[in-house]
Amino acid sequence: MDLYREEILEHAKNPKNWGEMENPTVKVQTPNPLCGDVIDLFLKLEGDPPKITEASFKTNGCVVSVASSSMLTEAIKGKKASNVLKLGEDDVLSWFGGTLTSSRRDCALLPLKALKEILGKAIIVG
């Protein structure tokens, strides 16, 4: 099956940036109301304008949400927060190459939702 192709499974089995972060600048816990899964996202921000220097996550979610979190945290490291805020749902969905059925899109978009929440918070705080 296309959705569970090698690349996606590899991210799910050996996710990048997995685990809790010590002294993050911001952290957030976001639930997926559809299934009850929860993602914890941690960011370290430095500089002005703020740049994301570190990103990590932890989740009890499915292959799709773990792979999406893994790819997302990789994609945002070293980027300016203002640029990361421009990341859209279509960008994340494109990583899955159009293999997601509508009921599984929420799984893929959960980390992005957490990211938007956390950056919103960071900008208010920062």
């Binding site: 979610g61 499915c62 292959v63 599984r104």
Partner: peptide
């Protein structure tokens, strides 16, 4: 295996 992943594979 997360139940959602199982259901997606079975749907296939």
């Amino acid at each position: 295996i997360h139940p959602h992943d199982l259901a997606t594979v079975l749907d296939g």
